Simulated scan of single mutants.
Amino acid sequence: MRLQNVLGRKGEDLAAGWLTERGYIILRRNYRFGKAEIDLLAQKGDILAVVEVKMRRAGHLQPLDLSIGQKKRNLLIQAADHYVLENLLDVDVRFDIIYILHFQDRYTLEHLQAAFSPY
């Protein structure tokens, strides 16, 4: 397995654990629809969080809200719509980014809720 895949998996594991500790239920990991992949689908109450996990080395300075381009956003929105309809969910959908910086064996996590709007 490539190092990038290992780090991505580690990031998703950290993000899922962090969300679970805060009362979210992880419904799906790596949900695919068409060309889209949603890293985590997590529910807390009537909120479905569509979570994109970004793992970066310390020193990476790109702002969180710019880490997902418009094309990726559109794909995430389509995949989230499909998931909600497929599972007949009555939820509010929110698009979040969990950004993890790592340096050696230390990790810093930042959760940006409602990082972008589907409209």
Rank of each mutant, 00 (worst) to 15 (best):
L112Y: 15
L64G: 13
Q78L: 15
Y83C: 05
L64H: 11
A114I: 01
L19C: 02
D65M: 13
G45R: 00
I38F: 05
Q104R: 11
I97R: 00
L40E: 08
D92M: 10
E110F: 11
A36E: 08
H60Q: 11
A42E: 03
R32V: 14
E110I: 15
E110V: 15
W18A: 11
L75D: 10
L75Y: 06
D92A: 13
D90N: 13
D65E: 14
L88K: 14
I25Y: 07
L85K: 14
Q4P: 02
L27A: 07
L41D: 13
L109Q: 04
D65Q: 15
L64P: 09
A114F: 01
I38G: 07
L41F: 08
H102T: 00
Y24I: 02
R56W: 10
R56G: 01
Q78W: 11
A42H: 02
A58F: 10
F116S: 01
Y119A: 15
T108R: 10
M1R: 07
H111Q: 02
Q4C: 09
F103P: 03
L40Y: 06
R9T: 11
V84R: 08
Y119F: 15
F33V: 06
L27I: 08
L7P: 01
Q43P: 01
I100F: 00
Q62H: 02
V6H: 12
R94N: 07
G69V: 11
F33E: 15
E37G: 04
V93T: 14
R22Q: 12
R29N: 06
I97E: 02
L27N: 06
P63R: 03
P63L: 06
G11E: 07
A79Y: 04
M55E: 00
R94S: 14
V93I: 12
G17E: 06
H60L: 12
G8V: 02
G59K: 01
I77G: 01
Q78P: 10
L27Y: 09
E37V: 04
N74D: 15
S67K: 05
A115T: 05
Y119V: 15
K54G: 07
L112D: 09
R73N: 10
E86D: 12
V93M: 06
V84H: 06
L64M: 14
Y99G: 07
Q4W: 10
F103W: 04
L89E: 02
R73Y: 12
W18T: 01
P118V: 07
A15V: 04
T20M: 04
E21R: 12
E21Q: 12
V51P: 05
L41Q: 09
G34T: 01
D96A: 01
R29T: 11
V6S: 14
Q113N: 05
G17A: 08
G59E: 13
